[in-house]
Structures are given as structure tokens and as C-alpha cells.
Nucleic acid binder design. Sequence first.
DNA 1: GCCTTTCCGTTGGTGGCACTAACGTTTGTA
DNA 2: TACAAACGTTAGTGCCACCAACGGAAAGGC
Lengths: 153, 153
Amino acid sequence: MENPEPDLVPTRLAGLPSWLITQTAVRAGRLVADGLAAADARGYHFRLLATLDEFGPASQAALGRRSGIHVSDVVAALNELAEREFVTRSPDPADRRRNVVTVTAAGRRQLRRLEKRLAAVQDELLAPLSPDERADLARLLARVLAHHTRPST
Amino acid sequence: MENPEPDLVPTRLAGLPSWLITQTAVRAGRLVADGLAAADARGYHFRLLATLDEFGPASQAALGRRSGIHVSDVVAALNELAEREFVTRSPDPADRRRNVVTVTAAGRRQLRRLEKRLAAVQDELLAPLSPDERADLARLLARVLAHHTRPST
DNA sequence: GCCTTTCCGTTGGTGGCACTAACGTTTGTA
DNA sequence: TACAAACGTTAGTGCCACCAACGGAAAGGC
């Protein structure tokens, strides 16, 4: 996308909430990707490490459900994390279908690095907003997200 | 992603504004994609048709800049639109490097269809928010987006 | 005890969006 | 007239989200 000449963006697009959300997400995604790339990581890696660190060792299926990553993609991302020894896979003695995935010390260090970078990204992303406005935005987005996560209707 | 068990989402992720934005965008993107797919279209098609309808015939490069679509992707999307005769390409006599792209009557009809579907999508997307809240959200997102479109800093 | 269903990990492939690199053609301009 | 810039096009990459299919293992019904 690079540089859409701002005033030229059709109002047909700019007026749609879905446009605002997805385009803002594109910008956010770029900032996040850049931040993570500086540590040779991408979104899936952070999401998996954060999930493991927060809930402890888990099967790949559970990891996928909690981090919102498709199981088949969990496999690939875990391969990459394991290759760099941020994570170890071992068969679950209690259920031989399962792999128990565990974060290593190096993995935890990597997670700290990524978190630090992402914290800076949040600030850059929300730069034009006051603390109150940031909270408002987060609250509104969380409501929308929650609604579409458990579609009660 | 399917169904991330809602309460299990790591707070490490759920607390990040970038997470809220990109995840909400994923949901919004699904709704939009579904809406457009019902008319055999995707995002790029709508964006190009809307841009053409609003600014009139234009070169492919100008279309790309205004719609925020990379020029090389404009080529492909325009091929698809032209194949269904929603759009015509003709060489610009005044500048033989350029193609002048024009919407056809059928293209305008398609655009109307897509707009109708997207209007419904907006409502579904923002269902949990009141009109005031929807306006707040749009305003905040627009500010963030504007800031990252012309990065003065 | 079987048998069916369900779950798990894995492979391979798809689609959408954004982007890069390279090329030939055409246009302006120094 | 050379040179730089813009245009359209092709081909290919990366990330994210997803589907289909498989074999192995576990759970549940009967």
C-alpha cells in the first residue's frame, strides 16, 4: 500500500468502519511485524511463546485454541521455535497422542525481548491518542471483538 | 482461527491494543469477505470499483494510489474485473504509457450490489455498539489511521 | 471385548492481501 | 540527445488464516 494519497482516498471507502478497522490493522500489523522481525520473529512465534508462558506447558491443540492459531500452523511455527531451542516437544506419557510443549529459558528470554519491542510499538501505534482515548478505543474494540467471538446472536 | 476459547486468551495478548485491532480486523475481514464472496467479488474489486465510480476514469497507477492497492495487484484485479466486463481498459491517446480504465454500466450495478452487502456488514460488525459509540470508534480509528498515513514524525 | 467416534499431530495445499524485483515502453527534462 | 522518471506487466515472496486428508491413540457405547 505504501502511500495512499490521503485526501484522495474515496469516501466510499474511508466512511466504512470495516475500512477503518482493517486499514488501521494493516498499519498496526506492519509496526508489529517490523518490531518482531528485528528479533527474527513473527506474530505466531510471539503468540505461542506468550501463551506458553502464561498457561504453562500444553499440547499443541490446546496452544492453538488459546492463541487462536490453526493447528496446522502451530506445527510449523513450533518447528521454527524448536529449531532455535525456544521450546521443546516431548510426548505426553499420560496421552500418547499429545506432545507436551514447554518453553525453555532461552524461549523466555526471547519472549521478554519481544514484549519489550511490542510495548514500544503500542506507543507508536497510539501516539495521536491521549491515555483516556486509548482506553476508550481499547474498550470499544474489546466489545466488538467479544461479540464476534461468542456470537450470541 | 475459528474459535479461540474466549476466556483462555492470554492476557499478554488481549491487553495489547495491536492485538485488539488486528483481531477485530480479522473478524471484520471475514464478514466483508463473506459479503463480497456472495457476489463473487473480493476486497480489491470493491475498492477499485468504488474508486473509479468516485473519481471517474483513471490510469492504473492513479487507481493504485487512490485505492491503496499495489500497482502490480491492480493489474491482476483489473484483469478479473475486465473479464466480467465491469471495467474497460483503453490506451490513453494523450500518453501512450497509460491505460484509461473506465467502469461499465454493469460495473456500476455490481458496485451497487457490493455496497448494499457491505452496508449490512457494517451493521453486523458494530452490532454491540450504540450509534454514539460507533461514531467514537470511527473517530478514534480515523485519528490513528491518519497519523500513520502521513507519518509527520 | 469390539467398534465407532473423537481427538491429536502432521503434511500439503489454497486464498487474500501487501510487497519486491525486474523488464520494456513511453515521456518528459536537463 | 542522453537520462531520469513514470507506466504497465510478469513473476515471485511473506504472513496470516484456512481446508482436506492421513495414521495413531484414546474414549465411549454396546
